[in-house]
């Protein structure tokens, strides 16, 4: 079971991440101290969550370019609610963020399911619509730290057992998605819908409906991330998380999730996001210009794609009777 769970590609990526940490540690030992590593993980939590949201969609042979606009819009909604109605409890605001994000995702899903429009077109459109709505809602104004209640800002920062709640929410999301993909009918349907849509239809799986749910769940995660983003950075404005959707796609690609759908693991998605998070956090520490970050991420994506393409190449078919192992 263990060997299956950690497919060799995931192990390889984990090895690369370890090497990366060793390399950074040689230049700057402070970076690899446990306290800082926890901080790096905490800082990467939002990327991990949203990368997994993106992964749900990519598994079904679709893509969601509107996740970052979803984050900005839900973030602005809860920030403004908190500013104008500070009496609303934070728990309710979090629930609102999740529901609003889920609805934004469901809108994408409905267009793709019911009208059969390609996902890249739908989400390119909703990306602009959602982003524009943030402006309409706020009139272009910022919600700043002093306009947010203390409780609103405190949630992600509260430290439990040495890890801020933000990090714990990241871990919880990872576990829930892992269980969802491994243990539920819908989770299984996502793989089938992306792996071979025609075969899935013949097997009685509604491909469009599976995609709709992938977008809705992914949207709900993005909504939660929207609250976490504005509360952690204690500011909400129109351009929040701009370009972040590409980071989530990059994390998936690095993590071995096939853009063609049907292939990918939670472990891969998490490792891909962690890799990007580490690179982003480490570069300033080892005195490399942040502009290099993009070049490095880009190079890593290409290397990852080449490795994945090689590993997906068939070794040979199993025809020999001797190779048979009866359970």
């Amino acid at each position: 079971m263990m060997a299956q769970f950690l497919k060799s590609r995931d192990v390889m990526l984990a090895g690369v991440i370890l090497l990366l940490l060793v390399g950074i540690g040689i230049i700057n030992p402070r970076f690899v101290q446990p306290g800082n590593l926890v901080e790096v993980f905490n800082d990467s939590s939002i990327l991990i969550m949203v990368a997994l949201a993106q992964m749900l969609v990519i598994l079904t042979k679709c893509i969601d370019l509107s996740v970052s606009a979803n984050i900005a819009l839900t973030g602005m909604i809860v920030a403004m609610l908190n500013f104008y109605y500070p009496e609303i409890p934070v728990a309710a605001l979090i629930a609102i963020a999740i529901i609003a994000g889920g609805m934004l995702g469901a809108i994408n899903g409905l267009f793709i399911w019911k009208l059969g429009i390609p996902s890249i077109v739908v989400t390119l459109g909703t990306m602009s619509v959602y982003r524009g709505s943030v402006f309409l809602l706020s009139g272009g104004a910022w919600i700043n730290a002093h306009q947010m209640s203390d409780a609103f800002k405190a949630v992600p920062r509260t430290v439990i057992l040495g890890l801020p709640v933000l990090g714990w929410i990241g871990i919880l999301t990872v576990l829930l998605i892992a269980v969802f993909l491994k243990m539920t009918r819908l989770g299984r349907s996502l793989y089938a819908a992306g792996g071979n849509p025609t075969a899935a239809v013949y097997a009685g799986i509604d491909v469009g409906r599976s995609r709709f749910y992938a977008y809705t769940i992914g949207g709900a995660i993005a909504g939660l991330a929207g609250y976490l983003w504005v509360s952690r950075y204690a500011v909400a404005y129109v351009e929040i998380a701009q370009g972040f959707e590409l980071d989530t796609v990059a994390a998936c690609v690095i993590g071995g999730i096939s853009i063609a759908g049907g292939i990918g693991s939670v472990v891969g998605g998490v490792l891909g996001a962690l890799f990007l998070g580490i690179v982003k956090n480490a570069l300033p520490v080892i005195h490399i210009s942040p502009f290099w970050q993009m070049a490095i991420s880009g190079a890593v994506i290409i290397v990852a794609v080449v490795i994945n393409a090689r590993s997906e190449r068939k070794v040979g078919r199993l025809i020999l009777k001797e190779a048979q192992v009866h359970a």
Binding site: R188, Y191, A192, A200
Partner: peptide, 28 residues
């Protein structure tokens, strides 16, 4: 094209049309 999902393991292919029978409340 219409038969197998080649990127999925054998057991997941075999049970693909029977998922309802092997799951309770959506859990497999």
């Amino acid at each position: 094209r219409q038969g197998a999902v080649t990127a999925l393991p054998i057991f997941q292919n075999i049970t693909l049309p029977s998922l309802a029978r092997i799951s309770r409340h959506g859990f497999l």
